Amino acid sequence: MERTYVMIKPDGVQRNLVGEITSRLEKKGLKIVGLKMLQINRELAERHYEEHRGKSFFEPLVEYITSCPVVAMALEGKDAVGTVREMMGATNPLAAALGTIRGDFGMDIGRNIVHSSDSPESAARELNLFFAPGEIVEYRRALDSWIYE
């Protein structure tokens, strides 16, 4: 099983979409192995968005992501990274297909509700940024045999 990182961004929290998003991910069959709400500080935001440093949108992005609490999730499942990315939809909500989280709830690229890791490598990096040792739990779900062969 693969792990991935998902963040419900400030606009998703402010718009009361935490339950809806979490429900969709669980109904798909993904297993939540870590979940918490946190207020991201500037240092963590800059580390998270390090690859965008120097770009014109870096500072507004850091200000936005630190403006309100977020919900951080560690998810586990078969091809979790790709599955979650598909469920999120295109980065620009206006280009995202209906039925995806961004396609159903987003209107602007700067307020696109969720973030998810784009590769297993970035998932490992992001999970280590947002979850301390012991905050991601290992457990077996009784229903896994009904999700996977």
Rank of each mutant, 00 (worst) to 15 (best):
residue 1 M to L: 10
residue 2 E to T: 00
residue 6 V to Y: 06
residue 9 K to L: 02
residue 10 P to S: 07
residue 11 D to V: 02
residue 11 D to G: 06
residue 12 G to H: 09
residue 13 V to A: 04
residue 13 V to P: 02
residue 13 V to K: 06
residue 14 Q to M: 12
residue 14 Q to V: 06
residue 15 R to D: 07
residue 15 R to L: 03
residue 17 L to H: 10
residue 19 G to A: 13
residue 19 G to I: 04
residue 24 R to Q: 09
residue 26 E to L: 05
residue 35 L to R: 09
residue 37 M to A: 12
residue 39 Q to R: 15
residue 40 I to Q: 00
residue 43 E to L: 05
residue 44 L to W: 03
residue 44 L to H: 11
residue 44 L to A: 06
residue 45 A to S: 06
residue 48 H to P: 04
residue 50 E to P: 02
residue 56 S to I: 01
residue 57 F to Y: 02
residue 58 F to I: 01
residue 59 E to V: 02
residue 62 V to G: 00
residue 65 I to K: 00
residue 65 I to W: 00
residue 66 T to R: 07
residue 66 T to W: 01
residue 67 S to A: 04
residue 69 P to E: 08
residue 75 L to N: 07
residue 76 E to V: 03
residue 76 E to G: 04
residue 77 G to A: 08
residue 78 K to M: 11
residue 78 K to E: 14
residue 79 D to P: 09
residue 79 D to N: 15
residue 81 V to M: 03
residue 82 G to C: 08
residue 86 E to I: 00
residue 92 N to Q: 10
residue 92 N to F: 05
residue 94 L to C: 03
residue 96 A to C: 08
residue 97 A to E: 01
residue 99 G to H: 01
residue 100 T to C: 00
residue 101 I to K: 08
residue 104 D to L: 00
residue 105 F to S: 09
residue 107 M to D: 11
residue 108 D to S: 12
residue 110 G to Q: 09
residue 114 V to L: 11
residue 114 V to K: 11
residue 115 H to Q: 09
residue 117 S to M: 11
residue 120 P to K: 13
residue 121 E to W: 03
residue 123 A to N: 05
residue 123 A to E: 06
residue 123 A to Q: 13
residue 125 R to V: 07
residue 128 N to V: 06
residue 132 A to I: 04
residue 132 A to P: 01
residue 132 A to Y: 06
residue 132 A to Q: 14
residue 133 P to M: 08
residue 134 G to T: 12
residue 134 G to R: 13
residue 138 E to T: 15
residue 139 Y to C: 10
residue 139 Y to A: 06
residue 140 R to G: 09
residue 141 R to A: 12
residue 143 L to N: 14
residue 143 L to W: 14
residue 144 D to C: 07
residue 146 W to C: 10
residue 146 W to K: 13
